[in-house]
Design a protein around this nucleic acid. Structure first.
Lengths: 119, 119
DNA sequence: ACAATAATTGTAGAACAATTGAAATAACAT
DNA sequence: ATGTTATTTCAATTGTTCTACAATTATTGT
């Protein structure tokens, strides 16, 4: 994970259509969905959906696999873990004792080690 | 957390300047930073930084507190937890047995309960 | 009161993203 | 082979966001 990848991911999820696509695919888990199903479920014209699927795929947030004339899309959830790790990389400057009320034990490695960090 | 809040958060972090501000403030933890410090650290003109700080504040990603003529900004890390919970809300349709190789145990509540989910 | 410092607001032009419809590509069925 | 279905690409239009400069507000120090 780096700055450019993170930006691309955030740009991808900053669109209502793409956010709904991503959340839908997370709900569908390993099965995923083919493009047409996504289009009819979310009531987005196929041509527009294709534009958004391309953006999500380019960001790595979803994967695509061909099935005959269908394209099956699946969410890439682990990428979200990388992104969170990138954001909280050097939380509290790596000094747990300064974390105090930062209140993000569940997300910040340093806060978890802090005396006031709730595990 | 709802769709509009999530969109606003993603839009906020989709800008290189704002992403760097947010990461910088996470590193600074509870101390935070005043606007001028952020501007000089990231080498962004104050007028432009102000524009981005407003967007981040509006999204709830950072908080601001007045200190005399300074404005001290701090990251709101817990909001990130809400966002992640929103994304993974109904992961795998709530059926752990279908999670399979979804490989997101650390982030998806259902996957964590699944036989193949790694805790 | 006056000047200096910290930060924000308003405005305008440039850059970028989203949507649409028409056309193209590719796979399948008859 | 031909027609049909699934999906993507292209081009044009519209709307939004970014940046910079000038002006403004608010606080502090003399």
């Amino acid at each position: 994970m780096n700055k450019n990848s993170a930006i691309t991911i955030f740009e991808s999820l900053a669109s209502p259509v793409r956010l709904e696509v991503y959340r839908l695919l997370i709900r569908k888990g390993t099965n995923g969905m083919v493009a047409g199903e996504i289009a009819s479920t979310l009531e987005v014209p196929p041509t527009n959906l294709s534009f958004h699927l391309k953006a999500l795929t380019h960001a790595g947030l979803i994967n695509v696999e061909q099935e005959g004339r269908f394209q099956r899309y699946r969410a890439n959830l682990p990428l979200m873990l990388d992104l969170i790790a990138y954001l909280t990389d050097e939380c509290c400057g790596g000094k747990p004792e300064t974390c105090g009320d930062f209140s993000a034990a569940a997300i910040c490695p340093q806060c978890s080690d802090s005396p006031s960090g709730i595990s």
